[in-house]
């Protein structure tokens, strides 16, 4: 037997019943969900939470922390997302190892929540390493490239 789904109308009904009572909160737990409806000042809130315990592990694999060699600078993404080396599939990459860049040079794109965010070099110099693969999901603390400052 599966749980009955709770509709928005059911939530309204629960609030209506609680409003007329002395209770400030109601906890419901089934095999599919946990729900707490509680008083919040003049109004009410609904808070859903997973049945299984959760921890803040993030979804993408954590990149191993890379040692950046002496005298090099890291290029980091503006946001977590998907790393792309070229403006479009099939197009030439923004930069290759050995290319000279300045602070405003766009070296890659990170797609976050369907928006394309340019990655700027942030420093003048030469690209030494490209450390992420095209199309790879990356976290915000990932080193994408290293630059030898000019």
């Amino acid at each position: 037997m599966t749980d009955l789904p709770l509709t928005p109308e059911d939530i309204e009904e629960i609030v209506s019943i609680l409003s007329k009572s002395d209770y400030d909160k109601l906890d419901i737990e089934t095999s599919r969900f946990r729900l707490r409806v509680s008083r919040s000042g003049e109004g009410w809130t609904q808070e859903w939470s997973p049945v299984e315990a959760v921890t803040n592990t993030g979804t993408a694999e954590k990149a191993a922390i890379l040692e950046i060699a002496e005298g090099l600078e890291a290029i980091m993404p503006p946001l977590p997302g998907t790393f792309y080396r070229a403006p479009q599939p099939g197009a030439p990459p923004f930069v290759e190892v050995g290319d000279t860049v300045d602070a405003d040079t766009v070296v890659a794109i990170v797609e976050t929540m369907k928006l394309m965010n340019p990655v700027h070099a942030g420093i003048s110099g030469t690209i030494v390493e490209i450390l992420a693969d095209n199309g790879e999901p990356i976290e915000a603390d990932r080193v994408l490239m290293t630059v030898k400052p000019a």
Partner: peptide, 28 residues
């Protein structure tokens, strides 16, 4: 924590619970 409002005339359509992660790969 995700505490959504509830009450007369209100409907909340959300998949986000307390303890969920909003992935970077999809829309916001």
């Amino acid at each position: 924590r995700a505490a959504w409002p509830a009450g007369p005339g209100l409907r909340v359509d959300s998949h986000i619970r307390s303890g969920d992660t909003v992935p970077a790969a999809y829309d916001s």
